[in-house]
Design a protein around this nucleic acid. Sequence first.
DNA 1: CTGTATCCGATAAGATACTG
DNA 2: CAGTATCTTATCGGATACAG
Lengths: 118, 118
Amino acid sequence: MRKLSSTNYYNQTFLEDKCALNELIHLLSKRWLTEVMFSIEEGNSRFSSLKEDLKHISDNILADRLKLLEQYKLIVRNNHLGEVPARVEYSLTETGEKLSDLLGGLCNFAENQMEFPS
Amino acid sequence: MRKLSSTNYYNQTFLEDKCALNELIHLLSKRWLTEVMFSIEEGNSRFSSLKEDLKHISDNILADRLKLLEQYKLIVRNNHLGEVPARVEYSLTETGEKLSDLLGGLCNFAENQMEFPS
DNA sequence: CTGTATCCGATAAGATACTG
DNA sequence: CAGTATCTTATCGGATACAG
């Protein structure tokens, strides 16, 4: 639960305060996060179906990414209360869909106009 | 110089191979990288003027980010050979300018349509 | 089924000192 | 002026075990 080593922490918050883009990119850079978003967009709404679709993801990472996406209001969590076994469904918010579109454009750019070294 | 702890390394390359977007985001997520790009776009072409513009960046980080941007062909390095003291100028490539535009759109989205927690 | 808790190795940022 | 080399600390991803 500790953090902030002076400059390291300071610089990160400085950059995030300066421009929201830095905070967004920091979020997007978390491994699997965009994949989880795209997988939900494609119709995988359950924890188990996401886990199956993203073959190599682990439970704790998937749970963490879902929590993050929910906190940033990019997805909504629909808990079907009281059902046993538990049933939860996720879906994109409007903001989430908009972001997904923008990332589509960026993806197209990355694949067609960028040259990656080695 | 060592790396790859099996799954950790494997998953990263798996995701980068699957979609170039992941590799691009991984690049953009390096701290200061977009700031360096934007600062060059605004006319800061020298190492020293970038360092002055981005007040809290350290030498080794700035040097590393410039090297990365050059490797990905987002900037070009123009070495004025034989001048003493050394003089080097950086500028955006066409690809760099295109990426900068796209990031502008993403930045606009981040600042106007996203809600950041806490 | 849908998660949480703890631990460990790998990577990234930055401080400091030094170089052509 | 424009960097490089070495080292320390913080953060991140993943394995494993467990819980409501």
